[in-house]
Every structure is written in C-alpha cells, then in structure tokens.
C-alpha cells in the first residue's frame, strides 16, 4: 500500500513517464527532421524527470524505477489522462505539450521550494527543462494558429480536443492535505490561474479561440484511465514482464 507521499511522487512521475512514452512515437515521424531531434529532446527530459521521481517514490520501500514503471498494473498508475491518449497528429501533440508543459513548469517552479529536499532538487532541474518545452510548444502553436487556413483549423480542433482534459491537472482530490500543509506538495488548484493565463496568452497570439469546454471525465489520478492506457502499458511493459527477474 502506497503512502500518501509515495502516491504524490508517483502521480508526478507517471505524468512525465507516460508523456515521454507518447512523444517517443514521434521520433522518425516528425514533420521535419529538425523536429525529430527536438521532440526526442523533450521526451528525454521528461523521461529523466520520470526516472528521478520514480526513484524517489520507490526509495521508501525499496522498489526500483523499473519495478514501478514495468510491474505496476494500469489501476496503479496515477498520471492524468491528458498525457496517455493517442497523439498522432502534430497539432494535437503541440497543443497537448503546451498545456502539459505549462502546467509542469508552474508546478516545478513551486516545488523547487518543497520541504522535501530531494523533490526540491529534482524540481529545480526540471523547471529549466520545462521552460524550454513551453517555449517550443508555444512557438509551434503560434505558427500553426497563424499559419495557413488549414493549419489554423487543425490546431483549433486540436486545442478543442485537449482542453477538456486539462482540468484534471488542477484536481486536488487525490492529494493528502497534510502533504500540502507540511510543504512537501503544491496544491494543484493554486496552479490553475497562472497556467490558464499563460495558455490564454499563447492562444491569443496564435489567433486561436479559448474553448469553452466542460471538463472531460478524467480520473487518472485515482487510477481510472482511458481505454488507451491499457494498450500503452501493454506495449511498454510486455518485454520486461516476459522475462521476470532478469537484468537488461
């Protein structure tokens, strides 16, 4: 049974891990070769964050990063549903990255002052990485939004599709209030205003409309995922699980 502390670390770790897993798909499929390199860089940053956070989560009971990544079942993953959904359209990938990395950037900036020294250190490193991810996503969203008619339509549709899934980023339900009180965690609800404001600015610059969308049914933080998650994990975990206990 995970402690509230472990659950919190896992949530942040799983966000980064699953996002990285989706980004990895793009390497060899990006719109230009320079972008293959860029998306790999972002995926690698996120994977690095995931590994550090998984190690932190596992430290309490001796589970390794790989135990946690490959041997947990779907219901034990705590990432938001936003990051687990398929993304094979570049507009979707950039709209999602904009939402996710803006939120991550605000989060890590706050967690750099966490009372947990390890989490603070991981966050201080990640805040620089995510600043670049936001920059990259914002540059593309502006270009797609204010590019051609087709790109405007497509990226507006992508934004509409991603928007309802961002609410879960600000959900507080899964989080033990004591962790906020003792300064370990950041109350996600406090990130909403700064994140929404930054997203609104980018969409405005991109000549896009901020969707008025109802929140999606998104309960990944509680271990209730979308149907896409099972396939993602099946692919990610099958080799590791096929050979129990070996070294790779």
């Amino acid at each position: 049974m995970n402690t509230p502390r472990t659950t919190y670390f896992l949530a942040l770790a799983d966000d980064a891990l699953i996002s990285s897993q989706r980004l990895g798909w793009w390497i060899s499929r990006a719109p230009q070769i320079e972008e293959d390199v860029a998306m790999a860089n972002i995926g690698l940053d996120q994977l690095g964050q995931a590994r550090a956070l998984l190690s932190l989560a596992g430290a309490a009971d001796g589970r390794s990063e790989d135990d946690l990544a490959f041997l947990r079942d779907e219901r034990d993953f705590r990432n938001v549903c936003l990051v687990e959904r398929e993304q094979t359209d570049f507009g979707v990938a950039m709209a999602r990255l904009l939402v996710f990395s803006t939120w991550q950037h605000e989060l890590y900036a706050a967690l750099a002052h966490s009372s947990d020294a390890m989490l603070a250190a991981i966050s201080a490193k990640a805040v620089k990485e995510t600043a670049y991810h936001v920059d990259h996503a914002a540059h593309w969203v502006r270009r797609l939004g204010d590019g051609t008619d087709e790109s405007h339509t497509r990226v507006q549709a992508a934004v509409e599709a991603e928007w309802p899934w961002r609410d879960e980023l600000f959900d507080t339900d899964f989080l033990d209030p004591d962790l906020v009180a003792d300064g370990t965690a950041v109350d996600p609800a406090t990130l909403r205003d700064p994140v929404e404001q930054r997203l609104g600015t980018v969409l405005h610059e991109a000549t896009l409309t901020v969707p008025q969308a109802r929140p999606a049914y998104s309960k990944g933080r509680l271990g209730r995922h979308t149907e896409a998650m099972g396939f993602l994990l099946a692919e990610m975990q099958h080799l590791h699980r096929s050979h129990p206990g070996v070294t790779w």
């Binding site: 891990l17 897993q21 990895g24 798909w25 390497i27 060899s28 070769i33 320079e34 293959d36 390199v37 790999a40 860089n41 995926g43 690698l44 994977l47 690095g48 995931a50 590994r51 998984l54 990063e65 790989d66 990544a69 490959f70 692919e235 990610m236 099958h238 080799l239 590791h240 050979h243 790779w248």
Partner: peptide, 28 residues
Amino acid sequence: GNWISRAPSLRRKAILMAKVQDEAGHGL
C-alpha cells in the same frame, strides 16, 4: 525506433531515444 516504446528498462529507453535522435542529427 521500433523498440523505443518497448525498451525493457528506463535506462535502455533513454539510451535508445538518444541514439535514434543522434541518427536524425547525423542525417542533418
């Protein structure tokens, strides 16, 4: 790239992503 999503450890996944990325860089 066919194995990035299935790499059997996170360390191997990171190495493989960096390697395939290098190939794009070399092409450039």
